[in-house]
Design a protein around this nucleic acid. Sequence first.
DNA 1: TGAAAAAATGTCAATTTCGACATATATTCA
DNA 2: TGAATATATGTCGAAATTGACATTTTTTCA
Lengths: 103, 103
Amino acid sequence: MNKEKQMKLEASGWKIGSVDEFLELSQEETEFIELKLSLSQNLKERRQSLRLTQKDFARMIHSSQSRVAKMEAGDPAVSIDLLVKSLLALKTSKKKVAGMLPH
Amino acid sequence: MNKEKQMKLEASGWKIGSVDEFLELSQEETEFIELKLSLSQNLKERRQSLRLTQKDFARMIHSSQSRVAKMEAGDPAVSIDLLVKSLLALKTSKKKVAGMLPH
DNA sequence: TGAAAAAATGTCAATTTCGACATATATTCA
DNA sequence: TGAATATATGTCGAAATTGACATTTTTTCA
């Protein structure tokens, strides 16, 4: 794990007070966070490529603009379930989604 | 979607009162459920192949035997987050556990 | 067989995640 | 530029998910 990745995670709100604390993240915790960020980024790219605003997309999935923003920001208080449901709503293929999950 | 798959979903507790109701599941809802069942089955296979009891595995992931049973049963009230965390936990410690086993 | 171990099922209070709303900040473009 | 549009951030009560526990059912195997 390099410095860049660390900054990225910290910037997304994952409670990381210091480098020491950060280094205490177990491998599976790190993998879990990275998986969520991967889903977040994929979602944002897909929504943007479809020229949808967060507001319009929120309507599509019966949610709110603020929650979409949090999804795309990789907010820790957003579940994988919601991210996956959102990706499926954008007709992301099952195969693609599966590829983002652990094998 | 064939009859067999339908029975499988119904047996797992997904609220499906009638065929009509079942057929109203949107494609993304169906895909979401199937994805979760896939993770469930994968988890059960992995745990069993490692010769772990639900109780022992529950300890590994700081959860309970009953929750593990529900995960593996594809219970709707289990999140993908928990399933993924569990899968990651197994992968991480696979070598260690395997080393404790005969041959 | 039958007793012990494993797994399944039901319930519950605590915690987490939810949509919604208010509002601040950023981006777009005439 | 500046106003309109889009996105980000903080908070809240409601709803969903959690680990734990009790109990029942199933499986294992001597």
